[in-house]
């Protein structure tokens, strides 16, 4: 009987190791194939002739896209969350606002991309551009910033608010000076996770921001802009030489590294502020 229990335990353990193995296989494969190409000139030059040169415009493009996306989604998301938690009356309007934001979280990114294409690119005439791409990414992560901010604001004890109000502060002063300050880390964690999501998103950027191989830095927010995921997509699917595969791996490695830095930072913040002494 004891033997059987142990066998099952080992079986269960091995399934969780499989999940870890999946991560390591993918990351190690990308690392071993991509590390060779990474040097300063790869990181700081522009691509040319499809599969040569570096990925500087792609890195900058990705950062700019995520920057616009955050500039759009963070203020709107945090403001919506503050309203929903602190101001919203319990009525049908609030309920439907909540419902719609929940809906937005469920919309597949490709559908949001199609919307960005028809609404921003064509209807508003923004063209395939950094602005269109950034805003569409913003639509995509907006529900995550709302939800993360809501959760973070809810964790601040109501007694803080009461104390602040009792000292004569107005409602907004209390929210701004007390609630937001306490909720900061949670909000930042949520934003960082949204940022990681936006950075790795391909379909949306492919439809709205550019073809990924742009060899120039964008001069205005209405220029098409290159990005790492689309660059990887182009080289991975359309390239057929060592040069293109190794660059796609190199770009993947850069993208994964950027992502890991962001999510480690998010985990660090979360562990520091929230679950350090919890049940685990």
């Amino acid at each position: 009987m004891k033997v059987r229990e142990n066998v099952v335990k080992i079986g269960l353990c091995s399934t969780s190791l499989m999940a870890v193995a999946a991560l390591f296989i993918v990351v190690a494969y990308v690392f071993f194939n991509g590390a060779g190409i990474i040097n300063l000139s790869f990181l700081l030059e522009s691509p040319y002739r499809f599969e040569y040169g570096g990925i500087f415009p792609q890195i900058i493009g990705s950062l700019c896209l995520v920057g616009i996306c955050l500039l759009f989604a963070v203020p709107l998301g945090v403001a919506s969350a503050i309203y929903l938690v602190e101001y919203a009356p319990d009525n049908i309007v609030t309920a439907s606002v909540r419902f719609f934001i929940e809906c937005l979280a469920g919309i597949p990114s490709i559908v949001i991309g199609l919307f960005g294409l028809v609404f921003l690119v064509y209807r508003l005439g923004l063209g395939i551009s950094m602005l269109s791409g950034g805003l569409t990414l913003g639509f995509m992560i907006l529900p995550w910033t709302v939800r993360a901010s809501e959760e973070a604001i809810k964790t601040v004890p109501y007694s803080y608010m009461e104390a602040s109000l009792a000292l004569g502060a107005s409602k907004w002063q209390s929210i701004y000076g007390v609630i937001l300050k306490s909720a900061y880390p949670g909000i930042i964690t949520g934003i960082l996770l949204g940022m990681g999501k936006a950075m790795g998103e391909t379909a949306v950027v492919l439809l709205t921001a550019g073809s990924g191989l742009e060899s120039f830095l964008p001069q205005s927010i209405l220029d098409p802009v290159a990005s790492l995921p689309v660059y990887i997509y182009m080289l991975a699917t359309q390239g057929h030489t060592e040069a293109s595969y190794s660059r796609a791996f190199g770009a993947s490695l850069v993208l994964i590294t950027m992502f890991l830095i962001i999510s480690m930072f998010a985990m660090f913040l979360r562990n520091r502020y929230i679950t350090r002494n919890s049940g685990f």
Binding site: R147, A148, E151, T275
Partner: peptide, 16 residues
Amino acid sequence: CHSFYFGGGDIMRSKT
């Protein structure tokens, strides 16, 4: 699906 990232709110309440 990301709600698990933000769990632990109650714990936070006690150690703010």
